[in-house]
Structure formats: C-alpha cells, structure tokens
Design a protein around this nucleic acid. Structure first.
Length: 763
DNA sequence: TCGCTCCGGGG
DNA sequence: GTGTACGGAGCGA
C-alpha cells in the first residue's frame, strides 16, 4: 500500500466507491467549518495465494514492499522470508481501483477454479475484503469523529406525517424538520396536489442546511422508503446526499429493514440503537419516556387518528410532529452516543455502528487493522474443536425467604480474566486481541475517571462517559468473539473455554471464601453471588466482608459490592425477588415478570411478596383472600383479567385454515369479528361459557370467576411455594377450605432451606 | 434443548 | 454505488 496520508481530525462522513474515488467530509473541530476532500484509493484485499491472478502475467508485481502508484496490480508479500500457514492471508493485493482488482480476481478464479459462472468475491474462499470506506479508513489510519463532540457535526432530524403507512395507499402531508443549529420548521401540503412541492421544498432545505447526520426513529423502515417512493411517483430525484447525484440507496445488511445509505451524510436510526437496550417497547414515545426526555405537554396521537385530527385541529398535529423531531434529537443524544464514540475506535463509518454487532462488526475490524498496519499476514482461522463448550457456573444454594442479603460480583469478569491471564486466540501471533482488550480496559478506566471529574464541563464529562461505555461494549464483546466459531476470523474456542474455566474457578474461590466466613450462600451465577448474613450487620460490615474475600483473589480480579436487600425470595436459579431496605420490590426472572401476566394476578403477587418478605404470612393470606373475594364478586373488570397476545395471521389467512384447525387466540378474534393482521396485538380473557374471548368491553365484568380463581393459584400463588412449609402453603392457597388440623396462620413463618447438590449447572 | 421463522416499528 | 447479517419470542420436532 501507498504510504498513509497524515490522519486529520474531524471526519464526519466517508463515501468511497468501487472506482476508487473517495470523498471525505470533515467538520473542523475549532471553526465548525465543513471541509470536503477528494482522494483516490487503489483498494486492498488480503489473499491467501496468487493462484487466481496468474492470468495477469507481468501486469502483476510481487514484492515485499508496499505497492507504488505505478504498479497496475500489486501483491505485497507479507512473509517473504518465513514459512507461513497456507491458510493464512499472506498477500495484500491492490489494483488501480477496488472494482478492477475484484474483477480480475473473479475473472482469474473462473479459469483457475474452472467455474461456469462469475463468482461473488465473498463466495470465493481465500480472500478477506472489507467495505470500501473501511479500506480507506484502515489504509489512511483514520477513524471518524477524532476531536469532535456529539453536537459538532450538523445533525438534522426530520419526520413525515402521512395519510397511511404505505406509500401505495397514502401520501405525505407534513414534514417536521429541525437541526442542532437552530432550525425548527414545518413543511405542509394541505392538498394532495402539493405533495411534489412539499418534497421539493424539503430536499432544498436539506441541501441548504447541509447536515452531516440525518436522524429519525425508524428512518430506515419508514421515512426514507416512504419518501423515496413518493418522490419516485412525482418524478423527483431524491437529492438528499452530497456526492454524485445525491440519491440514497439501500443496502441489505441481513436485517429485515434494509439500511439506507446517503452519500456524504450519515443516516442514523434511533430505533436501531434503542433495540439494543431491550426496552419493553422500542417505540419513540416509549423510549423518550423511559429516558425522561419527552417534551413538556407532549401530544400523543394514535397513528390512525392523525389524518382526521389534522383535518379538524391541524395545530394538534403540528405540535405532535414538532415534538416528534424534538424527541428524536433528545433521544439521539442518549442512544446514539455509544455508536458516535465507537466510530472513533473502529475503522468503520458511524452509520454502520448502530447495526454492527460488537464482536464481528466492531472488534474484528480493529483486529484486522492491527495486522494491516503491522504489515503481517492475517492468520488463518482456527478450526473449531470438538469438545462441548462450558460456560459460567450457575448454582442455587438456598431457596425460600432469606434476610439481609448481599450481592457481590467480579467486576468485568471475562475481560479481566483475558487481561490478567494473557488469553488470546492461538493463531493471533501478534497478540493483537489481547493488546486490544488490554489497551481498551486501561483507557476505559481513564475515561471513567474523567467522566466524574468535576473540573470538566457537563459536555466533556458526557463525552468521556460515552467513550468508556463504547470501550466497555467492545471489551465485553471480546469473550463472545473468541467463542463465536466460524464467524470470527480470530476466534478460538479453546481460548474461550480457558476464560470460562478460569471464571468458574474464581467464582468457586469466592463462594468458598464467603462460606468460610459463615454466610449462607443463596445463588451464584457466572460472575456474582447472592448471600445472606442472617443478622443485619450493616452495609459497612458487608462491604468489609467482601473486601476480605477480594483480597484473596488473583491480581487483576476485583470483587465488588453490588447491592443489598432486606430480604430475598429465592425461587429458582435466576428467578428471585428482592425487598430493598427502602421498601421497593425488585422482581427478576420469567417466573415473576412475565409479559403475559394479567393485571389482577400481578397485583396479588406483588402484595403477597411484599408481605411475605417482611415475614407477614397473614398479610399474604389476606392479599389472596381479598383477590379471590373480588374475583368471585366480579369486582375486577374484564381488562383486569385480560392478557395481551400477538396475532400471527391475517383474518383472511385464518378464514382459510379455520375449518381444518381452530387456533384459540385467532378463533377468539375471529368470533369477535375483528379485522386482524399479522403482528396485531389483541387482549383476550376467559368468559363463562364461550371461554377465550376477545376483549371488546374492557369495563365489563362477564369473565369466568372460577377459571380466574384457579389461575390465581396455578399461575401466581405457586410462585410463593418456596417461602412456606408445604403444608402451610396448601392450607393457605391449596383451596381445600378450612380443616380440622389447620394451623393458626399467625403461627406460620416464612422460611428457607438449603439446596444441597441440586440445581448446579453451567450456562 | 435445538433450530427455524417471524417480528419489531412507522402514519 | 454496499457488503457475510440484529436480538428476542414463540413454535414445533
């Protein structure tokens, strides 16, 4: 490769094409000015051997030196004087332009491998090729965003309001636009005939504001495809970008909604980032509320109401649309910050990073870059090994209600082990895996400190926080990458096994040391352990106890205090409830936080848990009796007992199969005459007589009390079994009615029992 | 337990 | 024009 140009800060977008032209947009970190540069690149591909290129004859030069500009095709031999694994990528190929190089490889492979059709480069074994922008960033030793904070690039948000969800059925009547330089405006087309002008005005506005980044929620799945379809219908070229004709295109990256790429501007979808957070809903409004950034006086409109509301009260819809883009801006600052920071670390464009997996998509390009920069062959993949992979150690030591509970965990256990033990893939002769994890961990600590440095501004601290978050993401991906099998080029399952084996040993050491100090273990899981001190010894003493155990651990391994609780109901591994000292209840695991829970049952469970965790058995009984009484007296509404399910068919599709096979959920919706589609959610409840029924009257009370009384025991009271002696549980919830040998409830106590050798496994 | 398919989300 | 793919739930075998 040619000697790298000097890296310069402030890259906000790179558009590199197969013909070798590269456009780079920068934002000057000091003046804020936008700079555009044009470069050419030859492109490069790692190759195992040169057997597909013999047809090039003397157009191909082979030497240990990097290509010079004159050589048409060049193969740099990265291991000229040493033996190298035949499966290693020994050569760095380059040509006049990426496409020409690739075409020659493909052409040569057809003859060399006697193929009938021209193969895709990706299907040809023996090559390692990255995207053109990635090739440019690595070759020029640059990454995005050096010296830039999140708001230095011009960020523009826009949001469409349309008359339907599909561009075949609806049109755009309003576009809300704002940017982080003070723009906030609405463009409208009150009549259908004005839609073309509306789109034109929007495109003009984008060119005028010249943003580096375009953001919205679900922009890849809704706004851009809708806009593109409507523009096409009007014959308007969608000049949104700033290179070539500026028209965006889609890239199928394997996800359901293709990625839209806009030359010279980064298209960022806040939904992609939100999806990583596993919130109950990924919707814009829910995410904004979750992060507390919903604007004051937020207008909420159902999608289907929007058109009618616009007709009757246009101001409401205008406010709604304006708030949408404000919300996207606020949400983006939070959820896009990790991707923005990651773009400084890995040689990939910003817009790729909300979708890129942290291992293959973020870490691996960094590893490849390290080999390219060192001028060394990229190692051959390890063949997977046969032995079964063992994960972390998970064990239940006690079940029932325990008091004064502490959680201790090993900080960043797997990365710490990788670092402390020098673990890395066998084939990684440069040790870049270990060096990368190690460097990132060190730098991360620095950023963590700076993020808390009171001398820095809020914005600076936020940048440091985002940086340490990004580094954490990569570092945590490292273990998974080792074990990822064939997908990971520098994966090594044996190394992954060494990490987990060491982790199990460390956890074992922690639990033994705790036991030796007389505490009761409750549950240990991979890198953490819950235990009870029996008596309340206070937080300081609990922390001191953990510190004593930590002192016996190997260098580089830290055991931390990770919270405490007044009491814990241990139900099953990973299924437990904590009563904090401030009275709040934390429920964990599918047994306690199922999305299918009915409102009446969830309320009972919380009330009963609250009582039991305070040792108040009569209180739990009262909650049960109260719920049972209200069920029998139909004091709950149908909505209180209903559960929400998702529909997997349309009404039409079900109509066809209904005669052969009835499906309970669909049948209920069908009977109710609902016009349902795939993905619709419907609420169902059980009625006396007809059984499962769609909820059409939420305030009604015609549910089946007998069914729900049984469900109260089966689905909810069951979760309390471990807290009580079996006979007591039967007496309280078993539904036998009062008996001769009944104990007085006031004499009953919550309790726990040790689980001797059960429930031990690895995950 | 595994492997496959489908969904999310937007007006 | 770009690039080997997201994560979880739910289902059937």
């Amino acid at each position: 490769m040619a000697p790298p140009p000097l890296p310069r800060p402030g890259i906000v977008s790179v558009h590199a094409t197969a013909d070798g032209s590269v456009h780079v947009w920068r934002r000057d970190p000091h003046s804020g000015a936008s700079l555009r540069e044009t470069a050419r690149q030859r492109g490069w591909v790692y190759a195992r051997n040169l057997s597909d290129l013999t047809h090039l004859g003397d157009r191909l030069t082979v030497s240990p030196d990097p290509a010079c500009a004159q050589s048409v095709y060049h193969a740099q031999d990265l291991a000229p004087d040493r033996p190298v694994d035949a499966r290693a990528y020994r050569y760095l190929l380059s040509g006049p332009a990426p496409r020409q190089l690739e075409s020659e490889i493909q052409r040569g492979a057809m003859t060399a491998r006697a193929l009938k059709a021209r193969p895709a480069l990706g299907d040809l074994g023996g090559y390692l090729r990255l995207g053109y922008a990635e090739q440019y960033l690595i070759a020029s030793r640059q990454t995005y965003h050096q010296g830039l904070t999140f708001d230095q690039p011009v960020r523009l948000q826009f949001d469409l309001e349309t008359t339907a969800l599909s561009p075949d059925e609806g049109r755009i009547f309003l576009i809300a636009v704002r940017d982080n330089r003070g723009l906030e405006t609405l463009l409208e087309a009150r009549r259908a005939a004005q839609e073309g002008e509306l789109i034109g005005a929007f495109l003009e506005l984008v060119q005028e504001r010249d943003p580096d980044v375009i953001e919205n929620h679900f922009i890849h799945g809704f706004d851009l495809p809708f806009l593109a379809a409507r523009a096409r219908r009007h014959g308007i070229p969608l000049r949104l970008g700033r290179a070539g004709d500026g028209v965006p295109w889609t890239v199928d990256d394997g996800s359901r909604t293709p990625l839209w790429v806009c030359p010279g501007r980064e298209v960022l979808d806040t939904l992609d980032a939100v999806r990583r957070l596993n919130l109950p809903s990924g919707g814009l409004k829910a995410a904004a509320r979750h992060f507390g950034v919903a604007p004051e006086g937020r207008v909420y409109l159902e999608g289907a109401q929007i058109v009618q509301t616009y007709r009757d009260q246009p101001r409401v819809v205008r406010a709604y649309a304006r708030q949408d883009v404000q919300e996207v801006d606020a949400l983006a600052r939070i959820v896009l910050a990790p991707a923005f920071a990651l773009a400084r670390l890995t040689p990939r464009p910003y817009h790729r990073l909300t979708r890129a997996g942290p291992a293959k998509g973020v870490l691996e390009p960094m590893l490849i870059r390290a080999y390219v920069e060192a001028g060394r062959p990229f190692p051959a993949s390890e063949r997977g090994h046969a032995g079964p992979h063992r994960g972390g150690h998970v064990q239940l030591h006690a079940e029932g209600v325990l008091r004064h509970v502490v959680k201790a965990d090993v900080a960043s256990m797997y990365p710490s082990i990788i670092r402390a033990e020098g673990i890395g893939p066998r084939q990684d002769e440069l040790g870049v895996f270990h060096a990368t994890v190690s460097d990132l961990t060190t730098q991360r600590l620095q950023h963590k400190l700076e993020a808390r440095n009171a001398l820095l501004s809020e914005a600076q601290r936020r940048e440091h926080h985002a940086m340490q978050d990004a580094m954490k993401l990569v570092v945590n991906a490292a273990y998974g990458y080792l074990g990822a099998g064939r997908l990971a080029r520098l994966g090594d399952q044996e190394a992954a096994d060494r990490v987990t084996a060491r982790g199990r040993a460390i956890l074992q050491q922690v639990t033994s040391a705790l036991q030796a100090r007389g505490v009761q273990l409750i549950e240990s899981d991979t890198d953490g352990v819950y235990f009870s001190t029996g008596e309340d010894i206070g937080e300081a003493a609990q922390r001191a106890l953990i510190a004593q155990v930590a002192a016996g651990l190997p260098d580089g391994i830290t055991l931390e205090f990770d919270g405490r609780a007044r009491a814990m109901l241990s139900h099953q591994v990973k299924n437990y409830v904590l009563l904090r000292y401030d009275g709040t209840l934390d429920l964990s695991g599918a047994s306690f936080e199922s999305s299918r829970s009915e409102r009446y049952g969830a309320a009972f469970l919380r009330a009963a848990l609250q009582a039991l965790l305070q040792g108040d058995v009569p209180g739990a009984q009262a909650a049960f009796e109260d719920t049972a009484r209200r069920l029998a007296g139909r004091e709950f509404t149908n909505a209180d007992v209903s559960t929400r399910v998702r529909i997997g068919k349309t009404r039409e599709a079900y109509e066809k199969t209904r005669a052969q096979r009835r499906e309970a959920h669909l049948e209920a919706a069908w009977q109710a005459g609902l016009d349902f589609r795939v993905g619709d959610r419907i609420d169902l409840y059980v009625r006396t007589g007809p059984g499962l029924t769609a909820l059409t009257d939420p305030d009604g009370r015609d549910y089946d009390p007998v069914h729900y009384r049984a469900a109260l025991v089966q689905n909810y009271a069951t979760r309390l079994r471990k807290a009580l002696a079996p006979a007591d549980w039967e007496q309280l919830f078993g539904g036998r009615g009062a008996g001769l040998f009944d104990r007085d409830v006031k004499d009953m106590q919550v309790g726990w029992r040790a689980v001797l050798n059960g429930a031990q496994k690895t995950n």
